[in-house]
Amino acid sequence: MTEEIIIAGFGGQGVLSMGKILAYSGLMQGKEVSWMPAYGPEQRGGTANVTVILSDERISSPILNAYDTAIILNQQSLDKFEKTIKPGGTLIYDPYGITKEPTRTDISIYRIHAMDTAIEMNAIKSFNMIILGGLLKIRPIVEIDNVLKGLKKTLPERHHHLIPMNEEALRKGMEIIKK
């Protein structure tokens, strides 16, 4: 099994760190993983994206032209990456700030109101974990336990008290994602 994922949105939305947690989760599950960011000033505003590959086999290219799953968090990214999803693939997006809805019919499309939910939960920093929860509901490529282990690896020790809040966000995301 190989899952090729693109996560794309604005800098500051936690795109790269969501990818990192996903990659660590894959590592915890014994998979081959690669995490390839579009690096540079994009991290500090503008658009940011990261390609994450989880596989049971050795990963060849960390750079891809087509993805099994795209997680889209702003309009620019939707315009850019909707067409790169493989037929039969998955698109997950947060409608917050989206003005032109996706149009493809040969892929499965899911909406997740993560931004609104994060604001409601008064946990704006858990926004990306809500999204990740949604992804794992639709594509259970890694177990929640391994995500929590991955979180522990990526968070510095002084932030480990935030893990329960992140777990709550993950589960919330699994709840609210819909077609």
């Binding site: 990192k20 990659a23 590592l27 081959e32 993983v33 690669s34 995490w35 390839m36 960011p37 690096y39 990963i59 960390p62 750079i63």
Partner: peptide, 10 residues
Amino acid sequence: DGVIGQMMEK
């Protein structure tokens, strides 16, 4: 190069 330097792998 920038790819190998910036990418994360096992």
